[in-house]
């Protein structure tokens, strides 16, 4: 039961501007990362009245840029551990803001982060409710809200 659909575009733009100083522009809905491109995905699960997940997927280059900004280091100094930490926190912020816009009482999981090429993120029993692709300073960013229908 979900009467409010959060606006992923506004949430994403606010977060990226505030935390990274990077403005994001809406891209075509079908826009995606190139085959073989290294992609970093942060996921938080939602439980409660709305069951589902929020995923944030960025190209490795964009993830490194965002991480470098938060740690105030050069992109060449970003470690994989720093990268995971930053994208996990990004998923937490995105998920938290989505959760606030949903009806009812919901809890947010701690974030998890996956890095790799040509993988698909699925959340068992859930379907995509909203998917938004963005151009973030020349790199692709995809934010998705998935929810699980109650039996």
């Amino acid at each position: 039961m979900q009467t409010t659909v959060p606006d992923l575009s506004t949430i994403t733009n606010e977060i990226w501007t505030a935390m990274f100083g990077i403005g994001v522009e809406p891209a075509d809905d079908g826009a995606d990362h190139a085959r073989g491109e290294r992609v970093v995905t942060g996921v938080v699960q939602l439980t409660g009245d709305a069951e589902g997940a929020v995923t944030v997927q960025c190209s490795d280059r964009l993830a490194r840029r965002a991480t470098a900004t938060m740690f105030a280091v050069d992109v060449t100094e970003v470690s994989d551990e720093d990268l995971s930490d930053c994208i996990g926190e990004l998923a937490n912020m995105t998920g938290g803001n989505v959760k606030s816009a949903l009806d009812g009482h919901n809890e947010l999981s701690l974030p998890s982060v996956t890095v790799g090429r040509d993988y698909e993120v699925t959340v068992r029993g859930s379907r995509v409710v909203q998917r938004r692709a963005f151009d973030a300073a020349g790199d692709t960013l995809v934010v998705t809200l998935l929810t699980r229908d109650r039996a």
Binding site: M70, F71, D82
Partner: peptide, 12 residues
């Protein structure tokens, strides 16, 4: 904060 990245931002 469990995020080192956020701690780094707040520390600065």
């Amino acid at each position: 904060d469990d995020s080192r990245a956020t701690r780094a931002v707040l520390r600065r």
